[in-house]
Design a protein around this nucleic acid. Structure first.
Lengths: 211, 211
DNA sequence: ATGGCGTGTCAACGCTCGTTGGCCTACAGT
DNA sequence: ACTGTAGGCCAACGAGCGTTGACACGCCAT
């Protein structure tokens, strides 16, 4: 509607072309920052506009002015680029470990992914956004590794299940053993799993084990 | 399917001559059933007492009478026994596949686990309940497979991450490829992963690949 | 019959939420 | 100096929530 969402891109993307800097840009950014914080910590329903506004140091009505409504604010707050590396340039046997490392760093760089996961679990809009990111950002990578489209879909879903599962245990549920693991420990355990899911042979059907 | 266990789980082993069957037992069970439905579909905050009551066909105040408050209702609704099989009686090499199969069936038998996972993602109480179930019902199994307690903790967390991750993708986020997979397909892919996490060799530290 | 208890309804409370509209202030363009 | 506008605050709204207390019915033992 007001096309203001473009303003938030400057945080990550630093686009130099003639961007008419408005005085409100800082406020907009502060709102987004606070929104990500609250969504990540509390999920969609418990993250209130009032609290987000207070954390950003402005009035709740400003949030409405800049983002229309709560749903619009959420959409702007979780716009996210996974920045998936191009697997073309990576030795195939290192794809698994590399991906785990990449996700760990993406996950801990800010609160966006935690917000997305937390909201995706209870909010239809959040779930749809997760599916969208999976479809547009993770699946293409599997397509590049496997010629068969359906198999690539399965493989990428398997990889997603392991990566999201670890993120869930570590950043959302905060299961103590998962929280305590180091990055390298996680890479060593999960890397081979992701590797097998994306590039390993499809598992054979069960070799008849009725007895 | 048996609504009998839903009633308090207090008086149902064997048959005590005096069955203090109350006329309200059916109502209590209906409330729990509706509560699990709503918690599983909407999470904690969006599942309202009023809606649960309407689905159970009674007045909201009945819910309060029988379960005290919303939090008490939740606790009663997600009381859950994973019914983990004793790994002692299972060929060690089949532990992974067996566990995946077991979880799939536990997950699809009713809505309790989905409710738990969905709520655990946004509600502190729900997260604590998930940690409790992990600690008391899943971890002991790993303890039985590994002599070292700390290693068992790590291993069981890894297994949990993969199982919960698949459940998240399949039952909560409903990622299409994960939803479309058959049980056997899931077992064939995830079984070896769980097997390795629980019984495989610990992965070696990286063989020096600084370059 | 009668009184108590178990089961249920109804109406209302206090609260918080998302959202709205009016008003104030600083300042840039004329 | 005047005025339009962008940036901001404030007070209020209607709705929905969890929760409460008073009350009504039907059953049993008295």
């Amino acid at each position: 509607m007001d096309g203001a969402e473009a303003a938030q891109g400057e945080e990550q993307r630093g686009d130099p072309p003639e961007a008419p800097r408005r005085r409100s840009d800082e406020t907009r950014a502060a709102i987004l920052r606070a929104a990500r914080d609250r969504f990540a910590a509390d999920g969609y329903e418990r993250a209130t506009i009032r609290l987000i506004a207070r954390e950003a140091g402005i009035d709740p009505s400003m949030v409405m002015r800049y983002y229309g409504n709560k749903s619009g604010l959420f959409a702007a707050a979780v716009e996210f680029d996974l920045k998936m590396p191009d697997v073309y340039y990576i030795p195939r046997r290192h794809v698994g470990a590399m991906l785990v490392r990449h996700f760990l760093s993406r996950w801990e760089q800010d609160e966006t992914l935690t917000a997305l996961l937390r909201v995706g679990a209870t909010n239809p809009e959040g779930a749809e956004e997760m599916r969208r990111i999976f479809r547009t950002q993770l699946r293409p990578l599997a397509d590049e590794l496997s010629p068969d489209a359906e198999e690539a879909a399965t493989r990428s879903a398997l990889a997603a299940s392991q990566i999201l599962g670890m993120a869930l245990c570590r950043y959302v549920l905060q299961l103590p053993p998962a929280v305590d693991m180091s990055h390298e420990e996680i890479v060593r355990w999960l890397g081979p799993t992701i590797q097998r899911y994306l590039t390993g042979d499809a598992p054979p059907p069960p070799p008849d084990e009725a007895g």
